[in-house]
Design a protein around this nucleic acid. Sequence first.
DNA 1: TTGCGTGCAAAGGTTTTGCATGGCA
DNA 2: TGCCATGCAAAACCTTTGCACGCAA
Lengths: 133, 133
Amino acid sequence: MKQRNAYQTKQTAEILQYLESIPNKHVTVSEICTALKDKDISIGTTTVYRHLEKLAADGLVTRYVVNGSSSAYFEYTHPSVNSYYHFQCEKCHRLMHIPASSVNSDGSGFSIDPMKTVLYGICDDCAKKEGKK
Amino acid sequence: MKQRNAYQTKQTAEILQYLESIPNKHVTVSEICTALKDKDISIGTTTVYRHLEKLAADGLVTRYVVNGSSSAYFEYTHPSVNSYYHFQCEKCHRLMHIPASSVNSDGSGFSIDPMKTVLYGICDDCAKKEGKK
DNA sequence: TTGCGTGCAAAGGTTTTGCATGGCA
DNA sequence: TGCCATGCAAAACCTTTGCACGCAA
């Protein structure tokens, strides 16, 4: 992973700064553009795409896709935060985090990158509601 | 899950039959259309989308998305085949299967649907190549 | 005739590409 | 001057929607 200060073009810095300011939140490209424009930072969609591609390739941000959503999500890869899986409930469609340690994938023989992964299933809340019916 | 014979319109049957004939292979909508046209079956993209949506909702086929690919994948949910996760190697981008039993997600507290999930990491082949360098 | 499955055409949305501009060294 | 980041506009996709047609009950 490259050092942060390898990205000191104005726009890249802004994107990175913004993503860092919303830890553990996932955003789409258009949300990033809107957020930056709200802060009076002029930036084009094309530029955001281009920088995110580079940042994702270098591991500073994570890009992942979710069944049912038409656009990709981006998230700052916080070095000091423990790794986690994404989880989407198939009932309520909420997106949550699952600590990487709570899933054991050793049996697969592969090393897995949890951050990029979205697991699907039913969340606790929805499971309880189902049970009560 | 609904019974197969609930789907006996000509086109749905064709789609289902085709998907069943290529077990464990993932295809996109346009690939389905091409394959069916090659078999001289006339079918429109819209129809394929509409039927797959229904089939996926009923659990007869699985729909999933992969980082880096712009279109969704569909796969016949074979009742007699053990459940598996999808896995994509981040180096060679090959898509593979991992038996559901080799990943233990009990710690998450949620019940997970492996078929819809795509795990990311480095496959054995690429790991070996890396090691040799 | 009524209802429904079909599929063309168009719309909607995301992402990529071409290209001209402007800033910085 | 020369290089490179930028961003508008257009293109390229994938997917959904509107609508009219035709077949079957």
